[in-house]
Amino acid sequence: MSRKGRSPDNAACEGFFGRLKNDIYYGRNWGGTTVEGFMHELNSYIRWYNERRIKLSLRAMSPVEYRRHLGLAT
């Protein structure tokens, strides 16, 4: 992420945070949630996003499975 107003540089971050807000933040009542509870929900979502989410552009594999398939992860 570089300077303000450089949308090509920020596109990946903007896309991720937009998806995160749509998936876990909007549509819920967070009024009774503690900071620890919110952090747990956020951590769970990020783990799902990185480890179990299926992407068609990655040959219908999760990002971790795809990296293993390419021999880039153990």
Rank of each mutant, 00 (worst) to 15 (best):
I24M: 05
N43E: 08
K55Y: 14
G31F: 02
E36G: 05
D23C: 13
R52T: 15
S57R: 14
Y25C: 11
N50R: 11
R53W: 06
M39D: 15
E51V: 13
R28T: 01
N50Q: 13
T33P: 00
L42H: 06
Y25Q: 03
F38E: 01
Y45P: 04
G27H: 07
I24A: 06
E51T: 12
I54K: 11
L58D: 05
G37I: 03
I46Q: 03
K55F: 11
T34N: 04
K55G: 02
W48F: 14
I24S: 03
L58W: 13
I54T: 09
R28F: 07
N29P: 00
R47M: 04
R47C: 07
W30V: 01
G27E: 05
Y49G: 08
Y45L: 08
H40Y: 10
T34I: 05
H40S: 07
H40R: 09
W30E: 01
N22V: 03
M39C: 08
E36H: 08
Y45E: 03
F38S: 02
W30P: 00
I46N: 07
S44R: 10
Y25G: 01
R53D: 07
R52F: 06
W30D: 00
Y49S: 07
M39R: 15
W30Q: 01
Y45D: 06
R52H: 07
T33Q: 03
G31E: 11
L58I: 14
Y45T: 03
L42C: 04
W48D: 12
G32W: 01
R47Q: 14
L56N: 13
G37F: 02
I24Y: 04
G37D: 03
H40M: 04
E36M: 10
N29C: 10
N50P: 13
I46M: 13
Y26Q: 08
D23M: 12
G27N: 05
L58S: 09
G31Q: 13
S57N: 12
S57P: 00
I54A: 12
K55H: 15
L56Q: 15
N50H: 11
R53G: 06
R47E: 10
K55A: 06
G37R: 02
S44D: 15
N50A: 10
R53T: 05
G27K: 05
D23Y: 04
V35D: 00
R47F: 03
T33F: 11
I24D: 02
K55P: 04
G27C: 05
G31H: 10
V35K: 10
S44A: 14
V35I: 13
Y45W: 11
Y26H: 10
R52I: 04
Y26L: 08
E51K: 09
F38W: 04
G37P: 02
S57V: 10
T34G: 04
H40V: 02
N50W: 12
M39H: 11
N43I: 06
T33D: 00
Y49E: 09
H40T: 09
I24R: 02
N29K: 07
I54F: 09
Y45G: 08
L42K: 05
R47A: 11
L56H: 14
Y26K: 08
I24G: 06
T34V: 01
G31P: 00
T33A: 06
I54P: 09
G31K: 12
V35M: 08
E41K: 12
L58C: 09
I46F: 08
K55N: 12
E41F: 05
E41M: 07
